[in-house]
């Protein structure tokens, strides 16, 4: 098994193959980045909405809770299938990458909204009351008082989530998005040994994920509100 690996290596690590792999890795990273950015913004909106006590927003809040609970309880693979077949009739020339990215954003919004909500709830109620008595509106309270204190609670789990998500995007290979996992499959189909093809892919995933997960554990210790400097 390992002789075959050594034997094939020179053919495998050609300039074009390496570029191809790196492009695939960039696509994996890109999907994760877009997913986490969109998910964070939409998740923030949902989390803020859920904090509202205005009776007019009640229907919206019910929808938001239903959305979050639904998308956190369905396998990502199933969501990909549903999005694939739901989007194709609507947008005839949507690329597979677009479809996968939409599925990713739907899921990341649900998970990140819960992470943001936990962060918002970690800010003591007295801070918000202080702002209200100074005549701060909801938006100003959020911007000047809540978010500056909540971010240190939000960031570490949000990064841990991004680390999970880098790996989950591998499922997009199933519908044919040419990301890292798919590139591994292509090399294996071209006759390279599976250990070489998938091994290279595993290494690249590791290189994407490990620094981020280290950053996450570092920030978790650094930002721990119970021992802030």
């Amino acid at each position: 098994m390992f002789e075959r690996l050594l034997f094939e290596a020179p053919d495998f690590f050609t300039y074009y193959n390496v570029i191809f792999l790196l492009e695939a890795a960039a696509r994996t990273l890109g999907m994760t980045l877009i997913g986490c950015t969109v998910g964070f913004i939409a998740g923030l909106l949902i989390a803020v909405l859920r904090q509202s006590v205005n009776p007019w927003t009640l229907p919206l809040r019910v929808i938001a809770i239903a959305y979050v609970e639904t998308f956190r309880r369905i396998p990502f693979l199933v969501i990909i299938f549903i999005v694939l077949y739901a989007i194709q009739p609507l947008m005839e020339n949507a690329s597979l990458l677009t479809i996968a990215t939409i599925a990713i954003c739907l899921v990341s919004t649900a998970f990140l909204s819960e992470i943001v909500r936990a962060g918002l709830e970690s800010v003591p109620k007295q801070q918000i009351e202080g702002a209200r008595t100074l005549n701060f509106g909801a938006a100003r309270t959020l911007w000047y008082v809540v978010l500056p204190q909540a971010w240190r609670v939000i960031l570490p789990p949000a990064i841990a989530f991004a680390v999970m998500f880098i790996k989950d995007t591998s499922l997009a290979s199933h519908i044919g998005v040419v990301e890292l996992t798919f590139s591994g499959k292509m090399f294996v189909n071209r006759g390279f040994s599976p250990l070489l093809g998938f091994g290279a892919v595993l290494v690249l995933y590791f290189l994407l994920s490990y620094p981020l997960s280290r950053l996450g554990t570092y920030l978790e210790k650094r930002l721990d509100p119970s021992r802030r400097s």
Binding site: G130, A131, F136, R140
Partner: peptide, 26 residues
């Protein structure tokens, strides 16, 4: 204006900012 038993100063702002934020932004 009200002053609370537990002060309720904004933890993320300096003393100066705590005092000036409402007059300036509100």
């Amino acid at each position: 204006a009200i002053v609370f038993q537990q002060y309720n100063l904004f933890q993320n702002m300096t003393v100066m900012r705590n005092v000036t934020i409402a007059p300036i932004t509100i």
